[in-house]
Amino acid sequence: MNGFERRAEEIKLRIKRTVLEMLRETEPKKLRVADIAARASVSQVTIYNYFGSKEALLRETFQDGVVRATDEFEAIIGDQLTMKEAVQHILVADREVYRSFPPDFVKTMVLEDQECAAFIETLYRDRVIPLVVRFIEEGKARGEITDKVSTESIMAYIQFMKEKMAPMLDLLEKSGDLDRFLGDMIHLFFYGISGKE
């Protein structure tokens, strides 16, 4: 990468970081390119040159975060941690994703942006599902996940949770305690309501 390309990437990254900061204060639909440009100390023309539109900027910002989270999940699985350690790392990573992306922004990207939804679906099918299957199989091999429940049943449960993302995001937003809510959801997934660990 030459100096011009490196500088362009630095500017794009600064713009996307600015978007993330502004999303903590403003709904995605209320963000304006003029406000993003002013806060990122770039011109509106620069944003349009690099991204084409506000929607494309939001999409790329979200997609970068999702890919980064998937990369982190893959790294956690590759670390050969115990199931409990891996879940703790995943929980921390999930919290960071939700801190970076307010629930309203996630809903907009996943449910209203068809291009982004297609990207997420492809990433989920091609990378996330194989990683989760590997995670489950390795957990079973180490005796940390019961053999009484098939991998297919666990995957079906995860698919069900994925399909209920919109109401989950609403509950998350209303909970008022992001960390506790995410912790409770992870606990319920792994230990059920009996709480047996």
Results as ranks from 00 to 15, higher is better:
R59Y: 04
A56S: 13
Y48H: 07
E137D: 15
T108C: 09
K148G: 12
L172R: 01
M161L: 14
T18P: 01
G176A: 10
G176L: 04
E137I: 09
L81D: 03
K12C: 05
R24K: 15
E10H: 10
G183D: 08
S153F: 09
I15K: 04
I77P: 02
P130T: 02
I120N: 07
I47T: 06
L23K: 05
K174F: 01
E96W: 00
T82S: 15
H187I: 01
Y50H: 11
H89I: 01
R24S: 12
T26H: 08
E85Y: 00
D35S: 10
L182M: 08
T82K: 08
R95V: 02
M168K: 11
K164T: 09
V67N: 09
F189Y: 13
L91C: 03
E173C: 00
N2D: 15
V106T: 15
R59V: 06
Q63G: 01
M161I: 07
L182H: 03
C116R: 00
F119L: 13
V110T: 13
K107I: 11
R99C: 07
L13H: 13
T82H: 06
Q88T: 11
R134D: 11
G139I: 08
L13S: 10
L171R: 08
M161K: 12
F4Q: 13
E163G: 14
V42W: 02
M161V: 05
I11D: 05
S150N: 01
I11Q: 06
V67R: 15
E74L: 11
R6V: 13
P102T: 03
E96H: 04
I186N: 07
R39V: 03
